[in-house]
Amino acid sequence: MASAGYSAVVDRLMSALGRLPGIGARSSERLAHHLLKCPPEEAIELADAIRSARDRIRHCQVCFHLTETDEPLCSICRDPRRDPSTVCVVEQSRDLIAMEKAATFQGVYHVLLGRLAPLSGIGPEQLTIDALAARVQSGTIRELIMATNPNLEGDGTALLVANRLGDSGVKITRLARGLATGSTLEFANRDMLADAFSGRHPL
């Protein structure tokens, strides 16, 4: 049913936009007005891009990063220069992209497609831990680097993976944390300093 004087079509558009993350009622109304005001081809291009992405993008069969439907493996898993024995485990593809932009890691990845968040109804079964366990059992992996976010949910997710795969014989490590390069001690908070002390290494 149309609301606030809008036709059912506009109402449907606003309702669809309002379901996007971070978009509330006012933002969805503003975006709908923009789409109705901009050149038609611009709006159609957006619609086509959404449809095309939904139709053509799948998860990589090995690491669960995004890939196109005609490629069962993503570009990283297909790259022969990457070291398949070192796997960096991340929560989502956006984290993988951040790692790739840094260009410091030559191994491969595993995307969990989320993090352990029982308060939000996300348990181990919603993550790709079974697939990760199968990769570990294949015997090609020497080290899992847990690169989940450095917060309680990220730490919990890392703990869950470590518990599950702790007996597999694979080395499981966690990304270092503490002081950021270029920062100053004066402005570091207590947690940063505690992490930096506990994670210190010989020179």
């Binding site: 029982p118 308060l119 309680l152 730490d155 919990g156 703990l159 869950l160 518990n163």
Partner: peptide, 12 residues
């Protein structure tokens, strides 16, 4: 809570 899954679930 960051060292033990049982503690983490109890915290949640």
């Amino acid at each position: 809570l960051r060292r033990d899954l049982a503690s983490l679930y109890a915290g949640y």
